[in-house]
Amino acid sequence: MLPSPAPPLLRRIPPEAWVGLAWCVAAAYPAVLLGGSARYHGGAAAHGGLAFTLADTAVAFTGAALVRRLPVLSVALLLVAAYTETDGWAANTQVPPAALLAVYTALGVITATRPRRSSRAAFALVAAFLVLHIGLVNGATVGIFTGTHLGSADGAALLALLAWLVGRSLRQGREHARALSARAAAEAVTAERLRIAREMHDTVAHTIGIVALQAGAARRVIDSRPERARQALGEIEAAGRETLAGLRRMLVALRQADGGAPDVLPQGLADLDRLAGATTAAGVRVEVRRRGEQGPLPPEIDLSAYRIIQESVTNVLRHADVRDCVVSVDRRTAGEVSVEITDRGRGRGGGADRGAGFGLAGLRERVALLHGEFTAGPLPGGGFRVAARLPIPVGVDG
């Protein structure tokens, strides 16, 4: 199994570290934190000095550590740390927006990664804190409502709303990406199931048709012509072995987990003569006509061309009520291979019923996946025709 690529560096940093870093950035500028009203005594802030800041930092780091496990408590601790660090209880002092940088970061992380209930609770807590804080400040004005000015706490509220919206946008983008990935995975599984179903049908249906005809012939002549019955049983054995080999090739291909080449070659147009011989032995003579240079083909083109012929010959064998058919493989046009299978039989429904079931539908899917053209239908003078044109990708060698 191939190793998964490492995520980008920014994604390898845990959310707790981002919140802690945001607190450190805010705490590194006490003049900004205190809104320009800080008073220093020997390098320490008047609210309590370095020891007070270290205590607030410990509370903030505790909140950062809980951002994923207990998101609401994390936001509460960060609010307490920012409120006390900026002397939020002092009269006429609003909490500056920069002081809540860690709160914004935590709110964005929670909204982007945690359940919606936690996100709403965290945002409500921040909004309630700011509203109460504005109400406790003497002479404070709420600029976004009065139109007079935008106070510090007002700006903090706007930044908190912005952080919540950014987190919500990131969350929606991640959910959309997950939905697209799940849908792509489901489509890939469905396509693989259809491919396996087509392979199973094309591998088994032809052999079952031959086995049924040969078994019926053996049953009718087992008493009068035992040598003919033995010959029919031999054809049944050969067809069964060929089908088992085909199933083994399919299972080997499905088990290839490293993308390497399987230890057995897939079927292709090189097996066409053997297919014609087995069908002829079952009672329908197959005339193979090859036109143009019959060189190697890409594996998927080679296998699909063979499966189209195999399924069509099987339909002739089962439904056409005819003694022969013609298979043509045309390589005269550069960049494509064309196959055509025709018969002059009528069978049940004059051949019109041969489009029912899974066989021709599977062939249409095969050709569509290879961007080719497929037609199947009765001929004007009686009989049935199946034709497909498969383009060969430019620069792809067999």
Rank of each mutant, 00 (worst) to 15 (best):
R183G: 05
Y306I: 08
L132S: 15
Q310R: 13
G347S: 02
A99S: 13
L136D: 12
L213W: 00
V126D: 05
A334N: 05
G36Q: 11
Q231C: 04
R241Y: 00
A45N: 08
A26N: 08
L34C: 09
T375R: 11
I341Y: 00
H176G: 03
A186S: 15
A51M: 01
I222W: 04
H176F: 09
A31N: 11
P262G: 09
L78V: 06
D87E: 14
L78G: 07
R195F: 05
R174C: 08
P71W: 01
G20P: 01
L213R: 15
T113S: 04
A352C: 02
P391T: 07
L10I: 10
V288M: 09
E227S: 15
E242A: 15
G139N: 09
E336A: 11
R195E: 14
I144M: 13
A352R: 13
E300G: 00
T53C: 10
W23K: 03
V386C: 08
V329M: 08
I13P: 01
R249C: 09
I308W: 01
Y306V: 07
A112T: 02
A102P: 04
S224I: 14
P3R: 15
E373C: 06
R228A: 14
V329D: 05
Q267K: 14
T141P: 00
H371L: 03
R228V: 07
V103Q: 04
L213G: 11
Q256I: 15
E373Y: 02
R171G: 03
R183V: 08
L360C: 01
T279V: 11
V72Y: 00
E311V: 15
A26V: 04
V252H: 07
G268Y: 12
L34S: 06
D258K: 09
N92D: 13
D263Y: 00
R178M: 11
A388V: 02
R193N: 11
H206S: 13
P391H: 10
